[in-house]
Structures are given as structure tokens and as C-alpha cells.
Amino acid sequence: MDQVMTIAKTHHAEKVVRIIVRIGPLSGIEPLLLESAFSISCAGTIAEEAEFLTETLPIRVLCNNCGVESEAAINNLLCQNCGGYNTKLLSGDELILARVELENAD
């Protein structure tokens, strides 16, 4: 929210219309809980009526064995190409403020 407000302020926004957050399934963050926390913390601010959207990020792993990048499931992070477990997570454990949509005064 601080980030949202900072962005809103630097752009002289009157109103925050939409907030889009990207959540990786392995971040340990529950989208629904984050959403309710958001609506509580937006009360009384220019983001009061903002629509809050969460996008789930895909889980992608890079295999250290065969070098192939593949999409994985939350409880199966093995390489989908060779089945190796020596993989590095490329995405899936992050929480990113992706976009803020604003209404400007000019």
C-alpha cells in the first residue's frame, strides 16, 4: 500500500482504480487473505474504491542437468524434461506489486 500511495502521489492521481499484484504459489501468501488485508488498509484513502486483482504466477524451473526450462506444479518441482530434481526455481515464490491504475487530474 505504501508503494501504491507513493506511485499515486508521484503521479498526482486523484483516485486509484485498480491494483494488480502478482503472487507466486510458493510464496506462502494466500491471495484471498491479501485481498482482505488490502481492502481494510485502503479504507479512507484514495484507493478506497480500487479494484484489487491478483494474478497467479506460473511456477517455472530451470534444470541444472539438461538445461531445459519447464513449467512445474506446486508440489512437483522436478524437471519436466528429464525428471531430475536438481532444478532452480525461476519464478513462483514471489510477491510483486505489478501494476497500479490511476485516474489523473490532468
Partner: peptide, 27 residues
């Protein structure tokens, strides 16, 4: 505690700003 994805992606500058509407006049 592997937060590889977090480290790879959560760099500043990943927050993009899109002014979608100029409905200010209406308001």
C-alpha cells in the same frame, strides 16, 4: 530458505505505472 524467484523478480523497476483513464474532468 530459497527465494530464488523473489530475488530474480522483485527488483525495483518491476512496478509499472499505467495511467488508464483521464476521467478527471468527470470528477
Amino acid at each position: 530458505i530459497q527465494q530464488d524467484g523473489q530475488l530474480l523478480h522483485a527488483q525495483p523497476g518491476n512496478s509499472k505505472f499505467y495511467p488508464v483513464s483521464n476521467k478527471a474532468k468527470v470528477h
